[in-house]
């Protein structure tokens, strides 16, 4: 019997991305730069988070024409973002045969009560999380991959570190005795909490996103146990995107080899313009 669109196939694609870097790109040309630098996938969008922050206004799914151009330009998987809760944008991405959907807080939420019922879709979804409860609710809804939210478009890694540590801490705090209570608190299926308790990890591939601006940032998150990284504005808002992209790919692979990290970090020019979290008007992570 031939089966399609099963959770095995959706989460399986996420497994193929492990150890890799997923890069935000705004044009087909940038997608080619990302692919030739060794990105495992590209996130196609009209505006990278730092520009969304600068320009303000409602941020939505990208123009299908741009997505098609990017799909035609590369052979690696193409991901694209939809607004939180905007299931019609997700239907459109499915019609376009995008490979992976990011239900993303970087775009302006469409529904402040509910996320998309992701298990109803053929395509795999990745979602952001700040803590274990958020991560498990998204998985319960059908997400095949989780990433930290971090604070996108800031070039500041502190929120990604905070979210990563929070998730790990809450996993470590699960005990045989508190599983029921936690399932209620997190508003998820008890089996899911039990699985996390048993395996001491989320049941899907977990990447880090939000604020990665240098090769050292990527390596930091990998040493902390991340399975890969999303780099949003960090590449195409830096002085030398092609070199920065290559350096971050090599740093992600050689995350535990400081001599290699030293070498790849050399002479990259200035990273993206960065922001202090306290001074932000809008925090995406709270969405």
């Amino acid at each position: 019997m031939v089966q399609k669109n099963t959770f095995e196939l959706k989460s399986g694609l996420a497994r193929m991305l492990k150890g890799g870097v997923i890069m935000d790109v705004m044009t087909a040309e940038q997608a080619c730069i990302a692919e030739s630098a060794g990105a495992v996938a590209v996130m196609a969008l009209e505006r990278i988070p730092s520009i969304i922050r600068r320009d303000g206004g409602v941020a939505r799914m990208s123009d299908p024409r741009l997505l098609k151009e990017i799909q035609a330009a590369v052979t690696i998987p193409v991901m694209a973002k939809v607004r939180i809760g905007h299931f019609v944008e997700a239907q459109i991405l499915e019609a376009l045969k995008i490979d992976f959907i990011d239900e993303s807080e970087v775009l302006t939420p469409a529904d402040d009560e509910a996320h998309i019922e992701k298990s109803k879709f053929k395509l795999p979804f990745v979602c952001g999380a700040r803590n274990l409860g958020e991560a498990l609710r998204r998985i319960d809804e059908g997400a095949a991959m989780i990433r930290t939210k971090g604070e996108a478009g800031t070039g500041n890694i502190v929120e990604a570190v905070r979210h990563w540590k929070q998730i790990q801490r809450e996993i470590a705090d699960l005990t045989k005795e508190n599983l029921k209570e936690k399932a209620l608190e997190y508003r998820v299926n008890l089996n899911l909490v039990m699985e996390v308790f048993k395996t001491k990890r989320l049941p899907v591939v977990t990447f880090v996103a939000g604020g990665i601006a240098t090769p050292a940032d990527a390596a930091l998150m990998m040493q902390m146990g991340a399975e890969g990284v999303f780099v949003g504005s960090g590449i195409f808002a830096s002085e030398n995107p092609s070199q920065m992209a290559k350096a971050i790919v090599q740093a992600t692979m050689n995350y535990d080899k400081p001599e290699v990290l030293a070498k790849v970090s050399e002479g990259l020019g200035s990273p993206m313009k960065s922001l202090e979290i306290d001074k932000l008007d809008t925090k995406f992570a709270g969405r």
Partner: peptide, 15 residues
């Protein structure tokens, strides 16, 4: 032929 069976939607399992 890389991705010769198509994009992710065409991914499948079979005997």
């Amino acid at each position: 032929d890389r991705n010769g069976y198509g994009a992710q939607q065409e991914s499948f399992s079979a005997e």
